[in-house]
Write a protein that binds this DNA or RNA. Structure first.
Length: 602
RNA sequence: CGGGAUGUAGCGCAGCUUGGUAGCGCACUUCGUUCGGGACGAAGGGGCCGCAGGUUCGAAUCCUGUCAUCCCGACCA
């Protein structure tokens, strides 16, 4: 990748094609602006061409990332995009990544060998490290690359935000012990904060689930923006921040149930908790709701799961997935709701959906064709902590009032599988409440531990001469996503307002009237002076009316605009700051110093 | 994959209900006027109406199939 820059460019030669109208398939501001500004073009679903302006932005981001990675002592490499299935079979991820909702593009070569188009590089790097790194003396090592990644997203959208082909910086560290891993993790955390700061982004680090990658600790870096796909919960004092997938909180107190007698009552239940509450004058926290899910497990029968939740709580499917994985100690491909349709396909009797209780008998699974015939029963703590509750009676339109766990059989095993909600009290401080924000994930750092090194059988010789699996960390930054997130966070009605460190050009000289020789000469002169002073400058030398040039400059978001216009004769020009939309008249002699003082140099 | 929608010029859209030789705005080309916030006038160029079948004397329009794209959910840098 050639990271050298042409410092200057004439707009007449830039292939600048801006759109006045918004393409119909763009939804969020950043996507619209990148299309309108001539930064990107869609080639097919989730796949974009980075046009010259965009490529300059990406190269600037990549350069910042490289500088900061290099400063931590990480080594840059470039790994293959085509990867053999064997490596992924060894790590146990081939099936999960290619079948079901798997996201790895995969193909067969002419020898009928299976290959995958890399969505990530843990397998390749770990096996390489196993070959290269034989002794603890060589450790720790961090390797990184900036690469195009491929993920066959279930639903590509929002331009570069969720695309099927994207640029990512990924780094992997190898250690002889956990302490060294934790140290590098901290170093990366700091480097990431510097990277995002230099890119001019407001980024919030949050606790995260480590998801498909696996591992112990992980942290995501979120660009806060309304258009973000993730829900983030933070405490009011900002001392706690987590992705909702991971967030923990103190649930609201349940309202005790007063009716003393246990009985079964007839309910005309629509299936909604609110309706049940209305008709029985209950609070949702007095109800136990039951959700049936099915876990598809690698090389085993699908496992039905019966989940009990307090009526006012929501199931956190990520926590559920992790819980079920640890309970069953197997690899789960996916967990999805049990529906009347798949009950039917299993040749099972219809279930009383809406009136299912935690004590639904395993007998109903007896005739299952392919499923396991016993429920795995789990509950959230909020459910098992209830003394007395209302729940389904396992018969249509029948509910049990004032049931308790003893009367309906034993308590299921309890876990934290509920969603923390905005408004909940924080664990670290009961006086703090959780606030909800939306965020775009631009970076993610993980302490992987020994998951991949053990799976792939890669090890080194430790101080005592014994073989040991590496401790590993991995660290990603979505470079192309970051560029778009920067736009999402820095724009106005008129267009993009690039942070100057990642703007395609730092300044644009606009000649208001190309037919005025004073303006033309001064414009050319200032352009040359900026170039000589190592400013990335554009010269708008098009035979267009001034208004068109101003609109375009605002749209493409160049941080500083120098307008050479009617005051050119006197050697005065307009200095316009894009983000504040303010201008002042300055003399040609102070242009360079003004520009440099605004863009800064780091 | 489930639910909803749309495919007509580079972009944004109308036309389809009620079949009759394809239209508007922007963009593009030429000329003239204009010239500091997406100018005006005149003249042009550009389309197998997503694709394939069918109905019909005749299909952008009706029918069937198919492909693609977008929106809502699961996925993630």
């Amino acid at each position: 990748m050639n990271l050298s820059f042409t410092r200057t460019m004439r707009v007449s030669r830039l292939m600048l094609v801006t759109l006045r109208e918004v393409p119909a398939d763009a939804e969020i501001s950043s996507h619209k602006l990148l299309l309108r500004g001539g930064y990107i073009r869609r080639v097919t679903s989730g796949i974009y061409a980075y046009l010259p302006l965009m490529w300059r932005v990406l190269k600037k981001i990549i350069a910042i990332v490289q500088e900061e990675m290099d400063s931590t002592g990480a080594l840059e490499t470039l790994l293959p995009q085509l990867q053999p299935s064997e490596l992924w079979e060894k790590s146990g991820r081939w099936q999960g990544y290619t079948e079901g909702e798997g996201i790895m593009f995969n193909l067969k070569d002419r020898q009928k060998r299976r290959l995958g188009l890399g969505p990530t590089h843990e397998e390749v790097i770990t096996s390489l490290a196993g070959e290269m790194l034989r002794s603890y003396r060589q450790l720790p090592i961090t390797l990184y690359q900036t690469q195009t990644k491929f993920r066959d997203e279930i639903r590509p959208r929002f331009g570069l935000m969720r695309s099927r082909e994207f640029i990512m910086k990924d780094a992997y560290s190898f250690h002889s012990n956990e302490k060294s891993l934790k140290k590098t993790y901290e170093v990366m955390d700091e480097a990431y904060k510097r990277i995002f700061k230099r890119c001019g982004l407001n980024v919030l680090p949050v606790d995260a689930d480590s998801g498909a990658i696996g591992g112990v600790a992980s942290q995501e870096f979120m660009v806060t923006a309304e258009a973000g796909e993730d829900l983030i919960l933070t405490s009011e004092d900002s001392s706690y921040a987590a992705n909702q997938e991971k967030a923990v909180s103190i649930p609201k107190e349940a309202i005790p149930l007063v009716n003393p007698r246990e009985s079964i009552i007839k309910t005309n239940f629509s299936g909604k908790i609110e309706d049940l509450c209305l008709s029985l004058e209950l609070d949702p926290s007095q109800i136990i709701k039951v959700i049936l899910m099915l876990a598809i497990i690698e090389e085993e029968k699908p496992q039905p799961i019966l989940i009990s939740l307090r009526g006012d709580q929501q199931l956190n499917e990520v926590k559920l997935f992790n819980t079920i994985t640890s309970v069953l100690k197997t690899r789960i491909i996916e967990i999805s709701p049990i529906t009347p349709e798949n009950i039917n396909l299993e040749c099972l009797p219809p279930l009383p959906f809406g009136s299912i209780g935690p004590d639904l008998s395993d007998e109903i699974l007896a005739g299952a064709k392919t499923w396991s015939t016993k429920f795995l029963r789990v509950a959230d703590y909020t459910a098992t902590n209830l003394e007395s509750f209302v729940c389904g009676a396992n018969e249509i339109h029948r509910h049990k009032v004032c049931a308790n766990w003893e009367s309906i059989g034993n308590k299921p095993q309890a876990f934290d599988i509920r969603k923390a909600q905005a408004g909940d009290k924080c664990i670290h401080n009961k006086n703090q409440k959780l606030l909800a924000k939306r965020g775009i994930e631009v970076g993610h750092i993980f302490q992987l531990g020994r998951k991949y090194s053990e799976a792939l059988g890669t090890n080194f010789t430790n101080e005592s001469g014994a073989l040991e699996a590496f401790w590993m960390g991995c660290y990603g930054i979505g470079v192309s996503r970051l560029a778009q997130a920067a736009v999402e966070q820095n724009h106005d009605e008129a267009g993009i307002c690039w942070p100057s460190n990642i703007a395609p050009f730092e300044a644009i000289v606009v000649i208001a009237n190309m037919k005025d020789s004073n303006q033309l000469d001064l414009g050319e002169k200032l352009y040359q002076v900026l170039k000589d002073n190592k400013v990335d400058a554009l010269l708008d030398d098009r035979q267009e009316r001034a208004g068109v040039k101003f609109k375009d400059a605002d749209l493409i978001g160049i941080p500083i605009r120098i307008v050479v216009g009617r005051d050119a004769k006197e050697g005065n020009v307009e200095f316009w700051d894009r983000s504040s939309r303010t201008s002042k008249l300055i003399n040609e002699n102070s242009v360079v110093s003004e520009v440099i003082s605004v863009i800064g140099r780091d």
